[in-house]
Each structure stands twice: as structure tokens, then as C-alpha cells.
């Protein structure tokens, strides 16, 4: 059964098409990453799933209920972490969680929820108006977890969190997924998605440009890795040795460096062994995996008419991002 299904979902604001004929299906129990740059239409889509925004055309179901006509059946079964939300500054953090418990008719312990999202008991007693952005994010996450929802919808859950908080968020998503909760979350930052998602959908300019597993996307885009080896010997003499290994498609030698394009991950070890057997001394090895970022840039910036050169664009940006690092 599907947790979220949209068919022809469209939202226009005057001439602007925010979401264009979106057909998306998220299976129960999966962790689905909804990716796209800012302004791609992710939040508009999520707002339509939550009946905050009404579609111009098409429809959506959440947990089998129509998002517009049966919204009241959806909300008790779903935990929502909205984007661009605010807390009630005068009410304490604990009161927020208690309010969520009251409305969901749940039997959660507010203190357990507060602890789970990493807020202290002292924090919970303070008015939420004193909270930092990250603490608000934690509080809202706690409210979303109330009532053990079947589906978690999180819009940019990592915003306002520091790297530590983001890891905690990812752990939380994994823990919820293990419990069988479907998690649908959006992000414009890929590393946050890469680590936890079973599948991703990439949205650009309101259109879904790809839906696949992360591995699948990598393969699609011709994603191999680049391996750069620094040798004590002159590299030119070892170029042939490197090029002869299966799974290595391209080798460029310059001074003491060999730059190899690897299509089969297992070829990396073969390459090192082969070079060693050939008597080379390897000083350093650097591997640039084709990051999701690269895929993303290729998918969202790549003009459709240039689909054929997409692979090149991807590897070009791959080396760029490698340099940037």
C-alpha cells in the first residue's frame, strides 16, 4: 500500500507554475527523500498533502485518504514538521508537547518526548520564545512524534540544526523507520538525505526530474569515482598498467600523479595491487566519489536538450566539487 500518492498534482500562482503535474508514489515503510533546490516546489507539494494549500489540478492521497476531502482522517495519523513554522512564544516547551498530546488523544509522556528530541527538562519549563532556531526545530519534531504516527512528513528537518543535531535527526529518522513509520522528508542539502533515504525524488522547477534509489541515480548518471594516486616514480611509465585493469576506463598521467576514472568500485583495490606489483611506491590515494551533490547539480541544472552530455556535466562538476573540498 502506498503512504503518499499524487496524481497530476499541480499548483499555479497566476502564470507561475509552482508544482507541475506531479505523479509521485511513496510506499509504506520507506524513507523517502524529497530533494530539490530552494523554490523547486517542495514545500508547496507538502502543503498540498497537508491541505494547507489547495491544488489547482490533480489530487493526492495520504495513507489512502484524499488530502483535501478527508484531511481530518489524515492528521491524527501523521506527524508533521512544517517548514517556516513558529512556536507559541509565551507557552513553555512542555505545554507545546502537552497540547499535541491532547489534540492527538495520545498517551505519550511529555517528558519522554522532550528527552527524545534532545531538550532538557529545564528547557521544557521555559517559554518557547526563548528558544534558538534549533531548539524550536527539536520541539516541533517532538510534537510530530506524539501519538506514534504512521507517517512522518518533515519539511527541511535539518534547518537550524548544527552538525551534531543533524546526526541526531538522522538517527531519529532511522529509529522511526525501524518501527515501521514511513518517513517523507524534504531537503535541499543532499548529505542529509543520502545517509537515511531508501529512495529519493528530485524536484526542479516544479517538475519531478528523477525518482530512484541513490545507487540507481548514481548509475544513471554514469557515476563512477575518480581515483588519484601520487607516486614516487614518474607516473607516465605506469599509465599502461593502470589502464589495463578492468573497471578503469580512463587514465591520465602527469608527473607523479595518475588520475583514473573508476566505473567498478572493486577496481580500486585491483589498481593499487597492480601498481604495487609493478614496483611502484604509492605515496597517497585520493578518491572522489560522485557525490549526490554532483548528481543533483546535473539533474537540476542540466538542460533537458543536453541530456546526452549529462554524463560529462556530471563528471565535470564532480572534479570541481572535488577541488572545492
Amino acid at each position: 500500500m502506498t503512504a503518499i500518492e499524487t496524481s497530476g498534482l499541480t499548483k499555479t500562482y497566476g502564470d507561475l507554475v509552482a508544482v507541475d503535474d506531479l505523479n509521485l508514489s511513496v510506499e509504506k515503510g520507506e524513507v523517502f527523500g524529497f530533494l530539490g533546490p530552494n523554490g523547486a516546489g517542495k514545500s508547496t507539494t507538502i502543503n498540498m498533502l497537508l491541505d494547507l494549500t489547495r491544488p489547482s489540478a490533480g489530487s493526492a492521497t495520504v495513507l489512502g485518504y484524499d488530502a483535501q476531502t478527508e484531511a481530518d482522517a489524515i492528521s491524527p495519523r501523521v506527524g508533521v514538521l512544517p517548514e517556516g513554522f513558529d512556536i507559541y512564544p509565551r507557552l513553555s516547551g512542555r505545554r507545546h508537547v502537552e497540547f499535541a498530546i491532547e489534540t492527538k488523544d495520545a498517551d505519550n509522556d511529555p517528558d519522554a518526548i522532550i528527552e527524545r528530541v534532545g531538550l532538557s527538562a529545564d528547557d521544557a519549563d521555559r517559554p518557547a520564545g526563548d528558544y534558538s532556531k534549533g531548539m524550536c526545530q527539536r520541539l516541533a519534531t517532538g510534537m510530530a512524534l506524539v501519538g506514534d504516527p504512521d507517517l512522518l512528513i518533515m519539511d527541511e528537518p535539518s534547518s537550524g540544526l548544527d552538525p551534531h543535531g543533524i546526526r541526531e535527526m538522522q538517527d531519529l529518522v532511522r529509529a522511526e523507520a525501524e518501527r515501521g513509520t514511513t518517513v517523507f522528508f524534504s531537503s535541499h542539502i543532499l548529505q542529509h538525505v543520502e545517509a537515511v533515504c531508501d529512495r529519493v525524488g528530485v524536484l526542479n522547477d516544479g517538475e519531478l526530474v528523477a525518482v530512484d534509489t541513490i545507487e540507481g541515480l548514481r548509475e544513471d548518471i554514469g557515476g563512477g569515482a575518480t581515483m588519484e594516486l601520487t607516486l614516487v616514480e614518474a607516473a607516465a611509465g605506469l599509465r599502461e598498467t593502470a589502464a589495463s585493469i578492468a573497471g578503469i576506463t580512463d587514465v591520465v598521467a602527469s608527473d607523479h600523479a595518475l588520475e583514473c576514472t573508476v566505473t567498478d568500485p572493486a577496481a580500486k583495490a585491483d589498481l593499487v595491487i597492480a601498481l604495487d606489483d609493478a614496483g611502484a611506491t604509492i605515496e597517497d590515494v585520493r578518491i572522489d566519489d560522485v557525490s549526490l551533490e554532483t548528481l543533483f547539480t546535473a539533474l537540476t541544472n542540466g538542460d533537458e536538450s543536453e541530456a546526452a552530455t549529462e554524463t560529462e556535466t556530471a563528471s565535470a562538476t564532480a572534479s570541481e566539487s572535488g577541488v572545492a573540498r
Binding site: 512544517p82 517548514e83 488523544d105 510534537m143
Partner: peptide, 14 residues
């Protein structure tokens, strides 16, 4: 305007 309505409507109240 503040956005707290999203938090509120994300819960069961309609």
C-alpha cells in the same frame, strides 16, 4: 504570519 498556524494545522485541529 508567524507560521505557528502550520504547527497547529499539522496537528489534528482543522
Amino acid at each position: 504570519r508567524s507560521g505557528s498556524i502550520k504547527l497547529l494545522l499539522g496537528l489534528p485541529p482543522n
